[in-house]
Amino acid sequence: MNPFEGVTPSLDVFGAEVNTLVALVLGGLWALAFVGCAFGALIGTGKWAVARHSNRSEEMTEAAGQLKVALIAFGVCAALGVIFAAILFIVGTVQG
Results as ranks from 00 to 15, higher is better:
1 M>W: 04
63 A>E: 01
47 K>F: 07
78 A>M: 12
56 R>C: 14
69 V>L: 08
93 T>V: 13
2 N>H: 09
2 N>F: 03
20 T>Q: 14
81 G>N: 08
36 G>C: 03
16 A>T: 11
37 C>H: 00
8 T>E: 07
56 R>E: 12
24 L>G: 02
80 L>A: 13
96 G>Y: 10
86 A>L: 15
26 L>N: 09
52 R>K: 15
48 W>I: 02
75 G>W: 05
50 V>G: 13
50 V>D: 15
14 F>Q: 08
64 A>V: 08
42 L>R: 10
14 F>I: 00
20 T>R: 13
44 G>R: 00
57 S>W: 06
74 F>T: 01
38 A>P: 01
10 S>Q: 08
83 I>M: 14
46 G>Y: 07
83 I>K: 07
21 L>Q: 13
94 V>Q: 09
45 T>C: 15
50 V>R: 15
70 A>Q: 02
13 V>I: 14
26 L>P: 02
19 N>S: 13
94 V>H: 06
32 L>C: 11
23 A>K: 04
9 P>S: 10
46 G>W: 03
26 L>R: 06
14 F>S: 08
77 C>V: 03
51 A>N: 07
77 C>P: 00
22 V>P: 12
55 N>G: 13
77 C>D: 02
47 K>M: 13
81 G>T: 02
16 A>M: 12
64 A>C: 08
57 S>T: 14
36 G>L: 05
55 N>L: 15
31 A>P: 04
76 V>M: 12
76 V>S: 11
53 H>P: 00
5 E>P: 03
6 G>L: 05
22 V>K: 15
63 A>F: 01
96 G>H: 11
63 A>L: 01
33 A>P: 00
61 T>C: 02
19 N>A: 11
4 F>N: 10
14 F>E: 08
27 G>M: 03
34 F>I: 01
93 T>E: 09
47 K>A: 14
64 A>P: 01
42 L>G: 10
76 V>E: 05
35 V>C: 13
19 N>T: 04
7 V>S: 04
27 G>D: 03
89 F>N: 09
44 G>V: 00
59 E>I: 03
23 A>Y: 01
84 F>T: 07
59 E>F: 05
63 A>N: 02
21 L>F: 15
51 A>T: 03
79 A>R: 05
46 G>H: 07
61 T>A: 05
87 I>A: 12
68 K>E: 09
73 A>W: 02
26 L>E: 09
4 F>P: 04
40 G>V: 04
1 M>A: 10
84 F>N: 07
90 I>G: 06
66 Q>W: 06
46 G>V: 00
38 A>W: 04
23 A>H: 01
71 L>V: 06
11 L>C: 04
71 L>I: 08
1 M>S: 10
70 A>V: 01
67 L>T: 04
59 E>A: 14
33 A>F: 03
9 P>V: 07
4 F>V: 12
6 G>K: 09
95 Q>Y: 12
11 L>F: 11
88 L>W: 13
11 L>V: 02
92 G>A: 15
9 P>E: 04
43 I>K: 05
84 F>H: 10
33 A>Y: 00
47 K>G: 07
35 V>P: 04
36 G>K: 00
21 L>G: 13
39 F>R: 10
34 F>L: 11
96 G>M: 10
72 I>K: 04
